[in-house]
Design a protein around this nucleic acid. Structure first.
Lengths: 346, 346
DNA sequence: TTGTATGCGTTATCAT
DNA sequence: ATGATAACGCATACAA
């Protein structure tokens, strides 16, 4: 356990030696070193060993900028998310980071803030930075700009099926997840189920609403538009939405919120109005945020394997960069039943 | 509102033109273009205009890799955080991203996972990538490695005072924040205040504990080690901690949790044990996470201006990079009183 | 298999 | 004030 080269100070060690130095020390040409680094061609075992020794001794690290300039890769992939601190996508970012890191890639995170023009601006920013590929976490971009982009570099996108070359799509299990939630409530005897939706121009939100409707119909229950209210995926939005629902005096015994944050807000509004969960009203959320196991009562919610999705996206990107085909199993949402739901009265 | 150059396809526009092209079109030498780009020297107004025209027409963007190679800047700053999806530091990341973006810089986020060796590994990774500066969000690194690094590039670090050149420290208001929380409880008549601490090898946790002790003493109350329990900053940790406290049968009427997540866990444990908040027990958290305004009951908590701290860190970094001095006002924590605290009985 | 020569796009050092 | 020209560190087409 000693440092690589005690003769050098830490600062010198960090970024002094170049491929040329390695070549000289190993008694070979720079190109040979390069070949070994990239596995571009076969080299004799002897030279191979000599070069590896030199690399270790000099603690050599290829300069990414030089690599990039020389036409090679930047060893970085751009990641377009909406908010870097999103409680939902956060786990996906972690999955991406982990997978990229073991592949010696780094993520370049940029945020689109759910605004198409910002998303596009950030995308060109990523291209200027010469990233080797781009992962798009949902967002509002049209398929066209993604296709356009895929001519330049590999693209992985979540939230939509996409069937174009050099591109891979990973869909969340929103539709089925929503059906699971509704089915659970109906199974408990709830007939009137309010739905607090996310912004319908988000694909996630739209799909979840479809799931809600579809399961209602599948179970032979009528769809009552009065039970549906569109909100913003925020706690405050859920709070307001529930107050509107309450004010409308429409009757319901179950509530399905399109994400946990809105469920939290709704739950507080219910409490302020004197309703108990789950004694009076059953409540189901979506996303199963880490907090949800510790809310009062612990929240029944639909879990998406968000970390997994991030990891899969990064894995797919690695494949695309290598020019490999990618086939991945679909991710499946699952219902986590906790204490916010209960059999309907009567 | 027309696109910059209709003759070019979107793909061509994105990254074809180079500084050389601009020079040719403007009828000047590449050096002149470079000078204009960097403001390195004076140029005649005529050429200035010609070059700017060419830049716009060709939609030219300097290649960061080439810039970096030539010894210039990468226009990127490394950000060492612990978990990319931390609910606490997340806002800081957003602050950093926003400020960097308006300065045409991009953040390179890496995660140390609260492990010294990982932090160091990620740091050298950042240096290899030739970032122009590094922002360290707390972590467990020794001051020495930061100083060593500051010889190479500007460093901004949160969580500690630091007095070395090319470096700037921003401290969280942990000590005072904790005092505020305790003072509030004492002011409500609570004499026995349990404290659920974070891991004491985190600076934040250590400072908060100091604040707890200090305020107790300032108010003439005894410090009872039996009332303090060390946990892990997680919901599950808070839950277990509270159960331990309860099992020890020590008496208390107020609880101060070193962060909101542990407060959530503690609150659930209290509920399961039949204690009501705030009727039986008053509870205060720390961090004021977005969720905390919507928990049941809404949680009294100490708010840190985490977004601001991120923004300040980035602003400081911009100054350091320009070689300017940085002086910033301290950030101040404030107590947000909600419904989880109430006057002590009797 | 291995070495040589060039070029990638920019900045920096000289001249002029 | 401005223009050649040489690095910067690496990959690669071309030779050998």
């Amino acid at each position: 356990m000693r440092s690589p080269n005690p003769d050098l100070s830490a600062s010198e060690r960090s970024q002094k030696s170049t491929l040329g130095h390695v070549a000289k020390r190993a008694g070979v040409s720079p190109s040979t070193v390069s070949r070994i680094l990239n596995g571009t061609a076969k080299v004799s075992a002897a030279k191979q060993a000599a070069v590896e020794e030199a690399i270790a001794a000099l603690n050599f690290r290829p300069n990414p900028a030089a690599r990039s300039l020389a036409g090679g890769r930047t060893m970085s992939v751009g990641v377009l998310t909406q908010f870097i601190d999103s409680p939902f996508y956060g786990e996906a970012l972690r999955g991406i980071e982990d997978v990229l890191h073991v592949n010696h890639y780094v993520p370049l995170f940029v945020s689109g803030h759910w605004k198409v023009n910002e998303e596009e601006e950030r995308l060109t920013l990523l291209q200027e930075r010469k990233v080797d590929g781009i992962i798009v976490l949902t967002g509002k971009l049209s398929d066209d700009v993604l296709e356009e982009m895929s001519h330049q570099l590999p693209v992985v996108v979540t939230g939509r099926h996409i069937q174009i070359p050099n591109t891979h799509g990973i869909v969340f299990d929103d539709f089925r997840g929503a059906k699971l939630a509704v089915r659970h409530l109906i199974g408990l005897g709830h007939q009137r189920i309010a739905y607090i939706s996310g912004p319908l121009d988000h694909v996630d939100a739209a799909q979840r609403l479809e799931g809600y409707k579809d399961e209602l119909q599948a179970q032979g229950l009528p769809f009552d538009p009065g039970l549906v209210i569109e909100s913003d995926f925020q706690e405050s939005g859920g709070y307001k939405a529930m107050n509107s629902l309450l004010a409308s005096r429409i009757s319901f015994s179950g509530v399905f919120a399109a994400n946990d944050q809105m469920a939290y807000g709704a739950r507080l509004a219910l409490s302020r109005a004197g309703f108990r969960v789950p004694e009076d009203i059953s409540l189901v959320g979506f996303d199963d945020l880490p907090h949800s196991a510790f809310t009062l009562p612990p929240l029944t919610s639909v879990r998406q394997q968000v970390y997994e999705i991030g990891a899969m996206a990064a894995t797919a990107m690695m494949s695309l960069i290598k020019g490999e085909m990618v086939t991945q199993p679909p991710v499946e949402a699952e219902l986590i039943v906790r204490e916010s739901t209960r059999r309907a009265l009567r």
